[in-house]
Computed example of a mutant assay.
Amino acid sequence: MALRKLSSDLNCKNGTCPTLWGTDDETTLLVQGYVVTDPEQLAQIGLPEGEAVVRVPVDMLEDYFRARRN
């Protein structure tokens, strides 16, 4: 399944920053971000096995949703 870049961190300087990706069938979004490793934060979420939490800038998601409205 092919991916396409939908939005990325607007303040990114090195090109490998948090990014929002979409699948070619438009049924799934993939989020690239910084892995959350803080035990207290993970405990609050109660993460099931096989899932991960990533941190992304709010600006990135706002940019994506703003573009979809237009």
Rank of each mutant, 00 (worst) to 15 (best):
59 D>F: 15
34 Y>S: 10
48 P>D: 07
38 D>Q: 04
24 D>Y: 12
13 K>F: 12
7 S>E: 02
9 D>H: 07
6 L>G: 02
63 D>L: 05
23 T>I: 04
59 D>R: 02
13 K>W: 09
68 R>H: 07
48 P>S: 06
59 D>H: 09
4 R>K: 08
1 M>T: 15
70 N>A: 12
5 K>D: 04
30 L>T: 09
4 R>Y: 11
46 G>S: 03
19 T>Q: 01
26 E>Y: 09
30 L>S: 15
61 L>E: 13
13 K>I: 15
65 F>R: 05
17 C>A: 01
42 L>C: 11
28 T>C: 03
37 T>E: 04
34 Y>F: 11
57 P>A: 01
9 D>L: 01
38 D>C: 03
19 T>N: 01
46 G>N: 02
27 T>Q: 12
67 A>V: 10
49 E>H: 14
16 T>V: 15
17 C>Y: 04
66 R>F: 12
4 R>F: 08
5 K>H: 06
46 G>M: 01
22 G>I: 04
13 K>T: 15
33 G>W: 00
39 P>D: 00
21 W>S: 12
33 G>M: 00
60 M>K: 02
14 N>G: 12
58 V>P: 00
65 F>Y: 02
33 G>S: 04
12 C>T: 08
19 T>A: 00
9 D>S: 08
55 R>K: 10
1 M>H: 14
13 K>C: 14
57 P>E: 06
63 D>M: 10
56 V>F: 05
62 E>A: 11
59 D>M: 13
55 R>S: 09
34 Y>D: 13
59 D>A: 10
22 G>R: 10
35 V>R: 01
46 G>F: 01
63 D>W: 09
50 G>T: 14
3 L>S: 07
61 L>R: 08
32 Q>N: 13
54 V>W: 04
17 C>I: 02
32 Q>M: 02
64 Y>A: 13
16 T>G: 08
62 E>H: 07
9 D>P: 13
2 A>Y: 11
66 R>C: 08
22 G>V: 04
67 A>C: 07
39 P>Q: 05
23 T>E: 15
53 V>E: 00
49 E>V: 15
37 T>V: 08
27 T>D: 14
3 L>P: 03
7 S>L: 00
57 P>Y: 02
64 Y>K: 11
19 T>K: 00
36 V>A: 09
24 D>G: 10
65 F>K: 03
20 L>I: 09
28 T>Q: 06
25 D>K: 07
28 T>R: 04
13 K>G: 13
43 A>I: 07
61 L>T: 14
39 P>S: 11
4 R>I: 01
12 C>V: 13
31 V>L: 04
23 T>Y: 06
39 P>C: 11
67 A>M: 10
12 C>R: 00
56 V>I: 03
3 L>W: 07
20 L>S: 05
62 E>L: 15
65 F>N: 03
5 K>N: 04
8 S>A: 03
48 P>A: 08
69 R>P: 13
